[in-house]
Computed example of a mutant assay.
Amino acid sequence: MDTHDHKPETNASGFIAPTSNAVEPEFELSTVPGHENAAPIPEEAAIADSAPIDPKPKKSRTPFQESLRRFRRDKRAMISLIVILCIVVIAILGPFIYHHIGGLYKQQLGTHIIGPDVYHTYDHQELDRAHEMPSPQYWLGTDGIGRDILARLMQGMLISIVLAVVVEIVDISLGITVGVLAGYYGGWIDQFLARLADLLFAFPGLLFIILVAGILGGWADDTLGAVPVIGAGGNARLLLISIVLAFTSWPLMARYVRGQTLQIKEQQYIEAARTSGTNDLTILTRHIVPNLFSIVMVASTLNIAGTIIGEAGISYLGLGVRPPGASIGLMISDASQSLSAYPWELLVPSLTLVIIVLSFSFIGDGLRDAFDPHSKD
Score class of each variant (00 low, 15 high):
residue 233 G to E: 08
residue 216 L to C: 13
residue 205 G to Q: 12
residue 216 L to E: 03
residue 234 G to S: 11
residue 236 A to G: 03
residue 219 W to P: 04
residue 208 F to I: 08
residue 216 L to Y: 05
residue 238 L to T: 10
residue 231 G to R: 08
residue 216 L to N: 05
residue 231 G to T: 04
residue 208 F to C: 02
residue 204 P to H: 06
residue 212 V to M: 15
residue 215 I to Y: 11
residue 235 N to I: 06
residue 204 P to I: 03
residue 238 L to D: 01
residue 214 G to Q: 09
residue 222 D to R: 15
residue 215 I to D: 02
residue 216 L to G: 03
residue 207 L to H: 01
residue 237 R to Q: 12
residue 228 P to Y: 04
residue 220 A to H: 00
residue 219 W to V: 13
residue 224 L to I: 10
residue 220 A to W: 03
residue 223 T to I: 14
residue 212 V to H: 06
residue 221 D to S: 11
residue 233 G to Q: 12
residue 235 N to E: 12
residue 237 R to A: 07
residue 235 N to V: 07
residue 209 I to W: 06
residue 211 L to W: 08
residue 213 A to S: 13
residue 238 L to H: 05
residue 235 N to K: 15
residue 205 G to E: 05
residue 236 A to D: 02
residue 218 G to D: 07
residue 228 P to Q: 05
residue 214 G to C: 11
residue 204 P to S: 05
residue 211 L to F: 13
residue 209 I to M: 11
residue 233 G to W: 03
residue 237 R to G: 09
residue 231 G to H: 12
residue 225 G to I: 00
residue 212 V to T: 13
residue 207 L to E: 00
residue 228 P to V: 05
residue 227 V to I: 15
residue 217 G to E: 03
residue 213 A to I: 03
residue 232 A to T: 11
residue 236 A to C: 03
residue 205 G to N: 08
residue 220 A to Y: 02
residue 204 P to D: 00
residue 205 G to L: 06
residue 211 L to P: 00
residue 233 G to Y: 07
residue 238 L to M: 15
residue 218 G to V: 07
residue 214 G to P: 07
residue 214 G to W: 12
residue 216 L to M: 14
residue 217 G to P: 11
residue 212 V to K: 11
residue 205 G to A: 15
residue 208 F to Y: 11
residue 231 G to L: 10
residue 237 R to T: 04
residue 228 P to D: 07
residue 225 G to E: 01
residue 226 A to G: 15
residue 208 F to E: 01
residue 220 A to F: 01
residue 209 I to R: 08
residue 226 A to V: 13
residue 235 N to F: 12
residue 225 G to F: 00
residue 236 A to E: 02
residue 236 A to V: 01
residue 218 G to K: 05
residue 213 A to R: 02
residue 221 D to T: 12
residue 234 G to V: 14
residue 238 L to A: 14
residue 210 I to W: 00
residue 215 I to C: 12
residue 218 G to I: 04
residue 232 A to Q: 13
residue 205 G to P: 02
residue 232 A to R: 14
residue 211 L to R: 01
residue 234 G to E: 06
residue 233 G to P: 12
residue 221 D to V: 13
residue 207 L to R: 04
residue 216 L to P: 01
residue 215 I to R: 07
residue 236 A to N: 03
residue 232 A to M: 14
residue 207 L to I: 06
residue 206 L to C: 00
residue 211 L to I: 05
residue 231 G to E: 06
residue 213 A to N: 10
residue 210 I to T: 01
residue 238 L to I: 15
residue 223 T to S: 13
residue 206 L to R: 00
